[in-house]
Amino acid sequence: MSTDAEQDGQSPADWRRWHEERIVAVAAPHGPLSLTGTHWLSDHPDGRIPGVPGRWREDGDEVLLTAGPEDGLTLDTKPLTGEARLGPDRGPIDTSRVARGDRRLVVLRREGLWAVRDFDPASPARHAFRTIEATPYDPRWSLDGVFRPYDTDRTVRVENADGHERGLGLGGEIAFTLDGSAHTLQVAVEPDGSLWAVFADATSGRGSYRFRFLRPAAPDAEGRVRVDFNRALLPPCAFADHFICPFPPPGNTLPVAVAAGERNRVDA
């Protein structure tokens, strides 16, 4: 007879499939390993970004891109010659509007600042990557939790992986019990109702990456949620230095060693 956890998709076989799919997604042509640069336009007032074709300038709520035939850029799969006005790209990387061959040039906006990200399938990091080191599934780390929403959303300032401090939106906390001790993690609420936690623990920087992500599914009508550390994720900045991942907010460093989930990137 299967257990409740197995019926909910929490089993060693389900975890192995999830782990294998993660490795494939990370190593995809436009996965996180392909990011070769995040270029803030404020650092390039003349609009010229070293190694990136075209001229990119801020223009209020848009980015003005100017390109000639020699730049080899396409916009919406068609050759771009002249000017184009761009907003932030919000879809998958391979659907970004601007490309040069296999490269994708993604427009990003954070706290009023504009940037261009360069995703190149030929990146050295992508070709050096071998796998993701992860701890095999252990039912001990799949826990019952309760989501407690805040009365109003909160924003806390946290350091990011690029050394700058930015706001992190939080919509509530999840409470759970591990080995008889009560713990909480502050979480953001995604548009589809799922949750996102940035956390550290006693293994961070000592056997696992310095912090990790947890993405529980949306709570049920009673607020119940599965807190499955077997599916703790490496953040994008574990695969490329050019991501600006937020560090854990105050209170999200667990005093226990979470020996579960993804731990580190492994290169050949």
Score class of each variant (00 low, 15 high):
S2Y: 07
T3A: 10
D4M: 01
E6Y: 04
S11E: 05
D14N: 05
W15K: 03
W18V: 02
E20N: 11
R22F: 00
I23D: 09
V24W: 03
V24K: 12
A25L: 06
A25K: 11
V26T: 10
A28S: 14
P32S: 12
L33M: 10
S34P: 05
T36F: 10
G37P: 13
L41I: 10
S42E: 15
S42L: 12
H44G: 10
H44W: 15
P45L: 08
D46E: 14
R48C: 10
P50H: 08
V52A: 00
W56F: 05
E58L: 08
D59F: 05
G60H: 11
G60I: 12
G60T: 10
D61R: 08
V63N: 13
L64F: 00
P69R: 15
G72E: 11
G72W: 08
G72N: 09
T74N: 12
T74Y: 13
T74P: 14
K78C: 00
P79N: 09
L80H: 03
L80W: 04
L80Q: 02
T81M: 06
E83D: 15
D94L: 09
A99H: 08
A99Q: 11
R100I: 01
V107E: 00
G112K: 03
G112M: 04
W114K: 01
A115F: 05
D118Y: 13
D118T: 13
D118M: 09
F119D: 06
P124V: 09
A125M: 09
A128F: 04
F129T: 14
R130P: 12
E133I: 12
A134H: 13
Y137F: 15
L143A: 09
P149T: 02
D151A: 09
D153W: 01
V156Y: 00
V156N: 02
E159L: 15
N160V: 00
G163W: 00
H164S: 14
L168P: 11
L168G: 11
I174Y: 08
I174F: 10
F176C: 06
T177H: 10
T177K: 05
T177V: 14
L178M: 12
S181W: 07
S181E: 15
H183V: 10
A188H: 02
V189D: 03
D192I: 11
G193P: 09
S194C: 02
W196V: 10
W196L: 15
V198M: 00
D201M: 07
T203P: 02
G205C: 05
R206H: 11
R206D: 13
G207K: 02
S208P: 01
Y209C: 08
Y209S: 10
Y209N: 10
R212S: 03
A217I: 01
A217C: 00
A218Y: 04
A218C: 05
A218E: 07
D220N: 12
A221I: 07
A221V: 13
G223A: 07
R226C: 07
F229V: 04
N230I: 08
N230T: 07
R231E: 12
L233G: 09
L233N: 12
P235M: 13
P235I: 13
P235C: 13
A238W: 06
F243Q: 01
I244Y: 11
C245F: 06
C245N: 13
P246E: 13
P246F: 09
P249F: 04
G251E: 06
N252W: 11
T253V: 14
L254I: 01
P255A: 01
V256T: 07
V256A: 02
V258Q: 06
A260I: 04
A260D: 01
G261F: 11
R263S: 07
N264H: 12
A268N: 11
